[in-house]
Amino acid sequence: MRDDLLAQLDSWHEEDEFQEIVDAILEIPVEDRDYVLVSHLGRALNNLEDYEAAVEQFLTIAEEGKNDPLWHYRIGLAYYYLDQYEDALREFEISDQLEPGDEDTLEFLESIRSTIAQNLEEELIEPVDSAETVETVVSNVQMDTDLDLANFWDDHEYASKEYVSDPPTDELIASVEEALVFKLPAFYVSMMKVHNGGVPQNRYFPTGQAISGGRDGVMISGILGIGREKSQSLCGAAGSRFMIENGNYPEIGVVICKCPSESEIVMLDYRPAGNDGEPEVVHVDKENNYKITKLAPNFEAFIRGLVKEETQGL
């Protein structure tokens, strides 16, 4: 009987009779529907473009499906068409890990990452409030409102080798946050899901007054990504904890950017907002008695403020 039903479901699927599949399975009591039947139901609902109902069904078998690349692919598909791109990205990445090289999965991953990057660019067009402080005048920073994230990074060989990791999964993000004891800024996490760490094309943050060595701004050498494998990642061999412990830097948050000078770093400062709040971005000068200079009210404002060094002071 069961074999006949499964054969009929497959036949209906081949004939695009998706409503027949839904009607037949819904006639079966919920407690009698196993993993295979619910998978058929969810797939049919996807094909009928009833994506919310499909997600609801797939979630009822999430525990059984956690190691099934097809389950992650199908629920990822539903999230994708619901415009829930972060959820879709997570599921397609897991599907790709479980079954590497599937062409459809790779196409969705490329599309999702492109969409997230485009959405980030549109967000960057919105103005960000500047904040005047004793240490620096953020309002003097020339914001690049036309920031092109597609060309934001300078992916040369060293950057790719030392900084750039695969996009982080939600599990990795949670693990890194637990190790650091700080919640990472949402804007930073979104950027890292598109391009995880690296060296920006524009690496100078002007401040309008001398910070270190007579310069009226801060030069960075790279942005640490979310991970452990690359040395220049938050929990890597030369990451945030390494820098703080070996450089005796203040325990105020997370080292987010390296600087060309070994006596300077850029940090996320959680003192004003707490470990789970939105951190400020500060410069710490080891040679100047660990002087802390506020650069921007948040990570997004810092990214928007980066310019080419030759344009400083303009």
Rank of each mutant, 00 (worst) to 15 (best):
S212A: 14
S212E: 15
S212D: 14
S212W: 00
S212T: 08
G213D: 05
G213M: 06
G214S: 05
D216Y: 12
D216C: 10
G217M: 07
G217W: 02
V218Q: 10
V218A: 15
V218D: 14
M219Y: 05
M219I: 04
I220P: 02
S221R: 02
S221Y: 01
S221H: 02
G222V: 01
G222F: 01
I223T: 02
I223N: 04
I223C: 08
I223V: 04
L224R: 02
L224I: 00
G225T: 00
G225P: 01
G225I: 00
I226P: 03
I226V: 11
I226A: 09
I226F: 03
I226T: 04
G227M: 06
G227R: 02
R228S: 12
R228T: 01
E229T: 09
E229M: 09
S231R: 05
S231Q: 08
Q232P: 01
Q232L: 07
Q232W: 02
Q232H: 00
S233R: 02
S233F: 01
C235H: 03
C235K: 07
G236W: 01
G236C: 00
G236V: 00
A237M: 11
A238Q: 07
A238Y: 02
A238W: 03
A238L: 09
G239K: 01
G239Y: 01
G239I: 02
G239D: 06
S240H: 07
R241F: 12
R241G: 14
F242R: 10
F242C: 12
M243Q: 10
M243S: 13
I244F: 11
I244L: 11
E245G: 10
E245W: 10
N246E: 10
N246S: 14
N246Y: 12
N246M: 08
N246D: 11
N246G: 07
G247A: 13
G247D: 12
G247T: 09
G247K: 08
N248P: 06
Y249P: 05
Y249K: 07
Y249C: 11
P250W: 05
P250K: 08
P250H: 11
P250I: 12
E251R: 14
E251A: 15
E251I: 05
E251Q: 15
I252F: 14
I252V: 14
I252C: 11
G253D: 07
G253Y: 12
G253S: 09
V254L: 13
V255N: 10
V255S: 07
I256T: 04
C257S: 04
K258L: 08
K258H: 13
P260V: 01
P260N: 04
P260F: 01
E262M: 14
E262N: 14
E262V: 06
E262K: 09
E262Q: 13
S263W: 05
S263A: 13
E264L: 05
E264N: 12
E264D: 13
E264V: 05
E264A: 09
I265P: 09
V266W: 06
V266F: 06
V266Y: 04
V266I: 08
V266P: 00
V266G: 12
M267K: 00
M267P: 06
M267Q: 08
M267C: 07
L268H: 03
L268A: 14
D269L: 15
Y270A: 14
R271N: 08
R271A: 09
P272S: 15
P272K: 13
P272N: 14
P272V: 12
P272F: 06
A273T: 02
A273L: 00
G274Q: 00
G274A: 04
G274V: 03
